[in-house]
Design a protein around this nucleic acid. Structure first.
Lengths: 264, 264
DNA sequence: GGTGCTTTTCCGTCTATCGGAAACTAGTTT
DNA sequence: AAACTAGTTTCCGATAGACGGAAAAGCACC
């Protein structure tokens, strides 16, 4: 009867969730056939599932084109994710201070799947600055915060990422060879922070440090990103200090105690 | 056989979505029994559905307590909602300029269900300022942006809201009587903007204007909110001008043409 | 008005879902 | 330490309800 590691899931629900994910992935509106092919379902089945999703507002269908896209309810539910809101609250004041001190854009980033995702940011003050946005996703291997988040994964998870992940070269400086990434990871873990030297976007450098929850697990990364012209070795070292400090501050807000407080 | 307006939905999917909504509503983690009662399901059924949701990362279960809460995937999908991202992009630069000119916090707000929800904001410069946050929800009847969004609804929808909505008094100044709200709505529609005079939080005033998409439908509201001490009649009138202008600017970014450009 | 493409509805088959009950786990009381 | 209580998870047989093929309805472009 073949049970697999599947456990006991509900088929139709699983398929409906796959449709939601597919819609999230395509970004814009998609037709029924495209969607049903993406999740490998009969069009009539996909249609029925989409109708159900639509009835609850998780999906909406354009009047004219009849194409489907994600609905408001999906947004509402997404914004109710407790875990993310806790991180946002804990990081907001720290991001603001960090942005004031560094004058550069500061970000709070979590790993979601094999991507890094900005959940909160504070813009820098300069006219020329890095423009972040909530919800933006970036590759783990080509950003400072991504590297920090990757370093927090178990070795076998990292290997899995290196195998299945698409290691795109976004700039001439992006490190894409698994061996070099493994070395880089070693470095990040040894130093407790990561640097992105124009590996994601030419002309942009970035430094990031880990954020821990009360169990000591790395749950996010804080980063400072700015134009290379203002991120030369002098400032960079300062920013590294700052961002590590910020990581520690946010971790404290989350209940992490670096050195256990003495009793009495 | 009684078909109702139900159409043909998939029962298990509908139930799973109800669980997601329930989780979003309770905010924090909830036990299996609490959830199954909330959505009126047998515990074993709810458990199976939750396992399915968990397998895809839409729900997560705490290690120790075994309580359920929304997962990261729900956040990811929520942030991929196209419609919201379009509004964010179109509003961001305008919110920033508006905040620089007014020195107060500026917000982009949409209606979701019978609540107003902040999807983007820009903080004011003052030390004393209104602190907005993405994802925060507020009542429609007690905020300037809420009033604008309500005014955009069809009359019978407004009536439905007045009946079923809980019209809580958040401050001594909150307008809670349906009749007064109807009158207020008349005013908002006639003037094309709304004011909240300490109706949501004592000491805070707020002005809001509608944002239209290319079809001319009101899809969001822009607002300026600041402490009453800096929102006296002099400034208030200026801010009303500013916020209406901002609403028009964002609408233009969305493709709305107030007066069609002359064709040569 | 025909042709090709997508979306929606219909319906009989049979599979995947349902819920009762039992097993398990953990925390509390006797 | 056993018994009790409350919540969570697994098991299983019955059948409600989901499935997909096929046909119908829309829509667009000739």
């Amino acid at each position: 009867m073949h049970r697999e590691p599947s456990g006991n899931r509900v088929q139709s629900v699983d398929r409906a969730l796959a449709l939601l994910e597919a819609l999230a992935e395509v970004g814009n509106a998609a037709g029924l056939v495209e969607l049903s092919e993406r999740v490998d379902l009969d069009a009539s089945t996909a249609h029925r599932l989409l109708q159900t999703l639509q009835a609850r507002g998780f999906v909406r269908q354009e009047e004219g084109t009849r194409r489907y896209s994600l609905g408001l309810r999906a947004f509402e539910v997404g914004n109710a994710v407790d875990f993310v809101n806790e991180l946002r609250h804990a990081s907001r004041p720290v991001l603001e201070t960090l942005a004031e001190r560094s004058q550069e854009t500061t970000n709070m980033v979590i790993r979601s799947g094999w991507k890094a995702s900005i959940i909160e940011y504070w813009p820098g003050q300069h006219f020329l600055r890095v423009q972040a946005e909530v919800g933006r996703v970036m590759p783990l291997h080509a950003t400072a915060s991504g590297k920090v988040l990757l370093a927090a994964c178990a070795p076998d998870e990292i290997e899995a990422f290196l195998r299945q992940g698409r290691l795109a070269a976004l700039t001439p400086r992006t490190v894409t060879s698994p061996d070099e990434i493994r070395q880089d990871q070693q470095w990040v873990r040894a130093h407790g922070y990561a640097v992105d030297d124009e590996e994601f976007e030419t002309g942009v450098r970035c430094v990031a440090a880990p954020v821990r929850n009360r169990d000591g697990r790395v749950v996010a990364a804080v980063s400072i990103s700015g134009p290379t012209v203002r991120m030369q070795s002098g400032e960079l070292n300062q920013y590294i200090q700052m961002v590590r400090r910020a990581g520690a501050d946010i971790s404290r807000n989350l209940g992490y105690e670096e050195a256990p407080a003495p009793v009495f």
